[in-house]
Design a protein around this nucleic acid. Structure first.
Lengths: 334, 334
DNA sequence: TTGAAAGCGATACCAC
DNA sequence: GTGGTATCGCTTTCAA
C-alpha cells in the first residue's frame, strides 16, 4: 500500500536519487553507465515504481495534462472529439482532463483549471456566443485551441468544413432528381450554421436551382425545433430536406410521419454528422459523416505543438467524410 | 502571468506563510485574530490567489479529486451519472476527473490513476464481466464505488432498481389490456439483464399472465440487436414489447415498421431509461425514467463518506422514476 | 495568536 | 558518470 518513491528505488539500487531520476525520466543524454541504467530500470520495474505526478509537476511546472472543456457529454460530436483528443494526447505522452461544463460555468472552469497548474493547455468547445466565449477565455492562463468553431482574434481553432458537408448532402439530393430542397438550419448567427447555409446554396447553384428563402427554416439543435421548423416548411411542398444535425432531422421526420408523408417515397431526409443514432431512426437516416474524432486529434496535436514552442499553424477546415446512404433518401417523386 | 503564491500573499499581508495558510484554508479552529483574518482574506482576493493543488496535494497526500471511469461517454446513462457525480462532488468540495476508457483499457487506467496520487477515490462503471472487472479493480490503490452494477465481494455499489422498472413498464402495458408482452433482454448473464427479466415476470404475474419463454429475446444493447431479436419474436404475435434500453427499442421499432405493423395500434413498445433520444423516435417512445443522475450523486456521496473514514453503508437499489407516456404505447388491439 | 522550520517526492544545477 | 542539494508551493507540528 505504501507508495514506492524515487528514494526507495535509489536506495534499493544503491545509487543516488538524482541518478535514478535521470534514468527513470528517460532523459535523452543520459550520462549514465549502461550497467547502472539497466539495474535501476530493473529494480524500478520490480518495485512497481510510478512517479508521483504531483511532485514532478510541482518541480517542473508542467503537468503533461491537457484539459478539454465541453458543454455536453452525451453529444456524439463532442464525445467523439474527446476520444480523438484522448488518443492523440496519449500517443504524445499527455493525459486528458475532461471537464464537462454547462454553459455559464465555462468561465469559472477555465479560470480554475488553467490558473491552478492543473493543465498545460486547453481544448475548448463552446456553444456560447462569441462575446461570452471571449470573456471566458480571457481568464485562461494557458494556451488553448478552439474546437468546432472560430473566434475572431483566437489564432488556434479546428473546425469541420460544414459548408462542404452541406453541399455534399445537397448534391446527393439533386443527383436523385430533387429540386425543391428545404434546409433546416441550426442556431441563427452561429458559425457552423452560416457555413452550412452557404454550402446548401452552393449545392443548389451547382445544380442550377435558384435559392428560395422560403425553403429555409431555423430548427436549432433539438428534436422539437426540427419538428416545428419542418411543420412550418410543409406548405412549401419540398421533396427533400437537409437537416443541420441528426437531432433536428429526427424531429423533422416526426412531422413528416404525422403529415402522412412517406420517407423517402414522398420526401427524402438527410442529416449532417453521422452517428449511431442515425440507425435508430426509421427509416434509417442518410447522413454525411464528419471527422469529429479527427477534429479532437488535430486540436490536441496543435495544442501540443504550441506547448512545445512551435508557432501556431492554422489548419484548414476538415473536409467531410463519406456520405452514408441509408433508407431516408430516394429518387424525387415524379 | 506569474502565479500568485501563498508566500506572495503572506508578504503583502505582512504575516507568515503559516498564518496565511491557516486562514486561507478555512480551517475550523482558526486561532487567528479576526482583524488579521479579514486582512489576509482581502489581500488574497485582491491578488486573485488560488492555491496550487499540486503543492497542496503533495503535502497533504490528498487531491480532493474523485476519479470516474466510464466505458462510453455518449451513453445517456453514463453522461447523466457523470453529471450527478459532478454536482455532488462540487458541493462537497471535490473535483471530478473523468476518465473514458474502452473496455480492456480499464485495468491500466485504474492502476495509473489510483497509484499515482491523482485521485482520492474512484467511481467505476463497467460493462465487463465480473472476472475482468475484478482483475481490473485489484490494481486500485484507493477506495472505490461501483455504479450500475454489483460485484460479489465489492462492498460499495449503487444500482438502479431495474427489476422495479421493468415491472412498472409491464404494468403499464397490462393496464392497457396487453397480455402477449414480449421482452427484449440485454446481455445474457448481466446483472441488470437478470433483474429486468425478473421484473418482467413480476409484472406478468401481477396480472395473472403466465410467463412464456418464447416471448423473450436477447437484443443486447444495440439497435441491430433489437432489430434481430424483434424479428425472431414476430411469429409469436406479441401485442406489446418491453425493451431493455432505448437503443434496442429503436431497433425493434424498425422491424415493426418493416413488417407493416402500426405502433401503437397493432403493437405497443416501451423502453427503459428515459432520455432525449426517446423523443427522436417515431412514434415517440414511452419509457420508464431512471434516476441515473441520482445514481452518480449517491455514488459520489458514498465514496466521499468512505474517504472520510465512515463505514460503508450499502444503499438500496434506486427506485425507478416516472413512467413517461408518449406515442408508442396504446390499448391492446381487440 | 503568530512565526519558524521540516518535510511531501520529484527535478535540475553544480560539483567531483 | 554520479552524488549533493536547493528548490517547487504548500501544510503542519512545535515553539514562542
Amino acid at each position: 500500500m505504501a507508495r514506492v518513491t524515487l528514494a526507495d528505488v535509489a536506495r534499493a539500487a544503491g545509487v543516488d536519487m538524482s541518478t535514478a531520476s535521470r534514468v527513470l525520466r528517460g532523459e535523452a543524454s543520459q550520462r549514465v553507465r549502461e550497467e547502472t541504467r539497466v539495474r535501476i530500470l530493473k529494480i524500478a520495474e520490480e518495485m512497481q515504481y510510478l512517479a508521483n505526478p504531483l511532485a514532478r509537476g510541482l518541480r517542473t511546472q508542467r503537468t503533461d495534462t491537457l484539459g478539454i472543456v465541453v458543454p455536453q457529454l452525451d453529444n456524439p460530436v463532442f464525445a467523439s472529439a474527446i476520444r480523438g483528443a484522448e488518443l492523440e494526447a496519449a500517443e504524445r505522452g499527455y493525459s486528458l482532463l475532461i471537464s464537462h461544463r454547462e454553459p455559464g460555468e465555462t468561465a469559472t472552469t477555465i479560470a480554475k483549471i488553467s490558473r491552478t497548474n492543473r493543465v498545460d493547455g486547453l481544448l475548448v468547445a463552446s456553444l456560447d456566443d462569441d462575446e461570452v466565449l471571449r470573456t471566458d477565455l480571457a481568464a485562461a492562463r494557458v494556451p488553448f485551441v478552439l474546437m468546432n468553431r472560430i473566434l475572431p482574434g483566437a489564432p488556434l481553432s479546428v473546425v469541420l468544413d460544414s459548408r462542404a458537408a452541406a453541399r455534399k448532402g445537397v448534391e446527393h439530393l439533386t443527383a436523385l432528381g430533387h429540386r425543391r430542397i428545404a434546409h433546416l438550419a441550426g442556431r441563427e448567427g452561429g458559425f457552423n450554421a452560416r457555413e452550412r447555409l452557404q454550402g446548401y446554396r452552393d449545392g443548389l447553384a451547382a445544380a442550377g436551382i435558384a435559392f428560395d428563402e422560403a425553403l429555409v427554416g431555423v430548427a436549432g439543435y433539438t428534436a422539437e425545433g426540427g419538428t416545428q421548423a419542418m411543420r412550418a416548411l410543409l406548405p412549401q411542398h419540398p421533396t427533400a430536406v437537409l437537416a443541420a444535425t441528426l437531432v433536428s432531422a429526427a424531429g423533422a421526420m416526426a412531422t413528416l410521419h404525422e403529415a402522412g408523408l412517406r420517407i423517402p417515397e414522398d420526401i427524402s431526409v438527410i442529416g449532417l454528422h453521422d452517428a449511431p443514432v442515425a440507425r435508430m431512426l426509421y427509416p434509417a437516416l442518410t447522413s454525411v459523416a464528419m471527422p469529429t474524432e479527427e477534429m479532437g486529434r488535430v486540436a490536441a496535436d496543435l495544442l501540443i505543438r504550441a506547448l512545445g514552442g512551435e508557432d501556431p499553424t492554422p489548419v484548414a477546415p476538415l473536409p467531410p467524410g463519406t456520405l452514408v446512404v441509408r433508407g431516408s433518401t430516394g429518387p424525387a417523386p415524379i
